[in-house]
């Protein structure tokens, strides 16, 4: 399988604080990869480093075989990487459809074309069509998460990075959102899922990586990794994860 994304000895941090140490991660074409780890393990930092939101050396991140580390974020999107960021980060003061249109405006100018349209997205999340003219700040958490996912999809990504899309949502809403993943993957889009919910991460991914204090402590096929292995990698001790 061809690699879409790979990182090689990725280091990144905030000022003097180093948050990632030699992180090697690979994502293949069409694959779903989960990234798990405790609070502060460096999962979001990893995604930010890939997106060009933190300074990293060019060789540390490869996309489609080319070094792209440190490429400006908007150029990464143009190359085909989109992110559903931690905290959703919607454009407040703008309606649902305007939030989504920002992505369409940009991606319609990319050379690379994709299959996502507004009507297709509304099929995936029908509630968004109903709320199209509503300001995003008055949506529920789940609906906001759908807008954030929709905005990323309308960037026509070949690789979609999702940062804790289940956080703070009711189980029913989480299921609804995760139910959209197969359709995303059916387009050949690779996915990186950062998740706190280990069970969810395991079941929704082909492979997983576990991080602890800025390092990858475990990686392998999701179905083969045991709870005990994860517990150890998660906390660096012999704990099990419930």
């Amino acid at each position: 399988m061809t690699e879409v994304l790979s990182t090689h000895g990725l280091v990144a941090g905030y000022g003097d604080f180093q948050a990632l140490y030699d992180v090697d991660v690979e994502v293949h074409e069409g694959e779903a990869v989960a990234l798990i780890g405790a609070n502060g393990a460096g999962k979001s930092t990893f995604l930010r480093a890939v997106m060009g939101l933190l300074p990293v050396a060019p060789d540390m991140v490869h996309f489609d075989g080319a070094p792209v580390g440190g490429t400006p974020t908007d150029r990464m999107v143009q190359k085909g990487v989109a992110i559903v960021p931690e905290g959703r980060r919607l454009f407040t003061g703008m309606s649902v459809s305007d939030n989504l249109r920002v992505a369409i405006d940009q991606s319609s100018r990319f050379e690379r074309k994709g299959c996502w349209t507004l009507s297709r997205l509304y099929q995936l999340f029908p509630i968004l069509e109903e709320k199209a003219r509503t300001p995003v700040e008055s949506l529920s958490g789940g609906q906001q998460q759908m807008v954030s996912i929709g905005r990323a999809l309308l960037c026509q990504p070949r690789l979609l990075l999702c940062d804790e899309i289940s956080l703070g949502l009711a189980p029913r809403v989480v299921r609804e959102i995760y139910a959209a993943l197969p359709e995303v993957r059916a387009q050949g889009t690779s996915v990186v899922l950062v998740e706190q919910d280990v069970g969810l991460a395991k079941s929704a991914s082909d492979r997983l990586y576990c991080m602890l204090e800025g390092r990858v402590t475990l990686s392998g096929r999701s179905e083969e990794i045991t709870r005990e292995q994860i517990g150890e990698a998660y906390f660096g001790g012999g704990h099990a994860v419930g």
Binding site: M51, L53, P72, T73, D74, V77, Q78, A82, I83, P85, R89, L90, F91, V102, A103, Q106, S107, F110, R151, A152, C155
Partner: peptide, 8 residues
């Protein structure tokens, strides 16, 4: 930042 993440 979110705008840049949307390709702007």
């Amino acid at each position: 930042e979110a705008a840049a993440m949307t390709g702007v």
